[in-house]
C-alpha cells in the first residue's frame, strides 16, 4: 500500500550510490532483497519503481527483487526451520520463544552500472 514511498526511497538511495567517476554511465539494474514477512508487494513495487525512476539519473534501470524466506531459530531447542504458513512456534518442541533470522528484509544490496565502452577510468582502476 506504501510501495510508492518505498520506490522513492529506493531511487534516492540508488542515485546516491553511483560513484562520482561513473556519473554519466547508465544504471542497468537495482538489486533488492525483500523478506516475505515484509508487507511489500513485489509487482506493485516494480510498477511504482518504473514511474519514479523514469525522471531520475537511473532512468531505464530494472528492479531485480530477491524474495527472502522467513526463517527462524527456536530459543528453547535451537531448531532452525523455514516458516511457510502463518504459524510462529517451533515445529519440533512447540515453543513460542523463537527468533526470526530472516524474512523482514527491505534492503538494497547493489546496483549494476553499464561498463563504460570508452573504458578509460573504470577498467584502468579496476
Amino acid at each position: 500500500m506504501h510501495e510508492m514511498g518505498i520506490a522513492m526511497q529506493i531511487v534516492e538511495i540508488a542515485v546516491a550510490s553511483i560513484p562520482e567517476h561513473l556519473k554519466n554511465s547508465r544504471v542497468q539494474g537495482v538489486y533488492l532483497k525483500i523478506g516475505k514477512l515484509s508487507s511489500v508487494i513485489p509487482d506493485s513495487l516494480r510498477f511504482c519503481f518504473d514511474i519514479v525512476s523514469k525522471d531520475s539519473a537511473i532512468a531505464g534501470a530494472t528492479l531485480y527483487i530477491e524474495e527472502i524466506p522467513v526463517t527462524a531459530r527456536c530459543k528453547s531447542c535451537n531448531n532452525h526451520w523455514t516458516i511457510i504458513g502463518p504459524a510462529f512456534s517451533c515445529p519440533r518442541c512447540s515453543s513460542g520463544k523463537i527468533e526470526l533470522i530472516s524474512g523482514q528484509e527491505l534492503d538494497i544490496s547493489s546496483i549494476e552500472i553499464e561498463d563504460d565502452s570508452n573504458g578509460e577510468q573504470s577498467s584502468a582502476n579496476a
Partner: peptide, 13 residues
Amino acid sequence: MEIKVVRKVLDVN
C-alpha cells in the same frame, strides 16, 4: 559493473 550498496530502504525513517 556491480556496485555494492547494502542499505536498508527505510534507513531515513
